[in-house]
Design a protein around this nucleic acid. Structure first.
Lengths: 221, 221
DNA sequence: CTATTGAGACCGACTAGTTGGTCTGTACAA
DNA sequence: TTGTACAGACCAACTAGTCGGTCTCAATAG
């Protein structure tokens, strides 16, 4: 179960790990302010002392969760674009890699997008910086696609990028693992929608046979 | 300033109105749990008594804000589809009408998407029902488009619908009134992206001259 | 091999402050 | 007089965070 996840530093004790995992689930269900430190430690079978031995504050715990997640996503995105040369393929890989994260890190994502307003100033800047980096990866792929004559040049880079981000990110509001479709299927649909929206028609004709565009398969719900 | 907004029942006293508007701004900035009732009443220049005269609880205030917003959006969407016959036009109208709400109800939207997890059981069902109705409006337009041979039949209705919703909804995370583009311009881009993603190519050829698709204008940021 | 030490991991009663909510009182209009 | 609209002191419950203390165990000393 843990094997597919990113390797944490082995310096993390079991309790610290458990506090993070437990509070992640609780925050996901009730929100950061809907869960008290007492509830966290009770759910962990530990104590206030145990908690504050590992975290200087409840806010730091929130930061650790945020940082852990965004760092992971960032690495995955960088991997995705580095192992491809063609902008279309890069876009496809980014979307598919991000969408995969939903299976592994659903609570992380919910907390990340839901509770980030509660991050205290010293922490919020660090997270913002990484989020911006992530955005710029998306933007750069779109820009590259336009420059290479693959994507439609009339599209504004930033807003198109935010549209894609929004489409994918919003999944955290509704995706359930036991829903009708697997996360990979959903990813394929996203890729299909995005590429149909971005590619210039000639390119689309040429690439329609590639696997990232949905065939005329009947996809029932 | 208020004139463009929906007419509230005139039974609302000035204080109740003021509490709603003030807390909306505060919730938007600091989150529902980041603002205490004391802070609300202080910002309003009123008192605990004043507050609890109009609201039975802080939770009810949150519900009122939610219900007010979703009801408005629902009406707008129903207007949008009823005044059009063609699915393409319906989709266009829905997106444009929703996007317009961002200018008028930015704090409502932020609170709606950010704090809804804190709605208590008696309230949360009522809101969920209306949200579902909204989703089904979108779904029905997509379904109609597919049935009429306008939208690509290989697209799954629900996920495509959630993609569109996500794309548009996500705006609340980044849209600023004084940004580079007006909300109407952003709406046009959304319409362009969505229709390019949904329309079958023949339709696209035929309708490319229509105003809802971006011309080869250079849109700089 | 045993004894001593000391540092990290953890416990839980405690505190100071804040929270949502109540209750009595008041001003005023009908 | 009666009801509505508000004021603000008050309260019980809960909050994040503290702090003195205990336990474990590895490193060192004898």
């Amino acid at each position: 179960m843990e094997c597919k996840r990113i390797q944490r530093g082995c310096s993390l004790t079991e309790l610290k790990e458990k506090i993070i995992e437990t509070s992640l689930t609780l925050f996901d269900q009730h929100g950061f302010h809907g869960v008290s430190v007492n509830e966290i430690v009770k759910a962990c079978g530990t104590s206030k002392g145990g908690f504050y031995h590992h975290f200087s504050s409840k806010d730091e715990l929130l930061f650790v969760i945020h940082d852990y997640f965004i760092s992971y996503v960032l690495i995955k995105a960088q991997e995705a674009i580095s192992e491809s040369t063609h902008p279309t393929e890069k876009m496809q890989k980014i979307i598919q890699s991000f969408v995969k994260v939903f299976d592994l890190y659903k609570p992380h994502i919910s907390v990340f997008y839901q509770e980030s307003i509660y991050l205290k100033p010293p922490y919020v800047e660090a997270i913002k910086k990484k989020r911006q980096t992530y955005k710029e990866i998306i933007f750069s792929v779109i820009k590259e696609g336009i420059d290479k004559g693959v994507f439609r040049s009339e599209l504004p880079v930033e807003i198109t990028g935010m549209s894609i981000l929004g489409m994918v990110n919003w999944s955290y509001k509704w995706y359930k693992r036991d829903g009708g479709k697997t996360i990979d299927e959903i990813g394929d649909i996203y890729v299909d929608l995005v590429l149909n929206a971005l590619l210039i028609d000639k390119q689309k004709e040429a690439e329609i046979t590639q696997p990232f565009l949905l065939k005329n398969q009947v996809v029932v719900d």
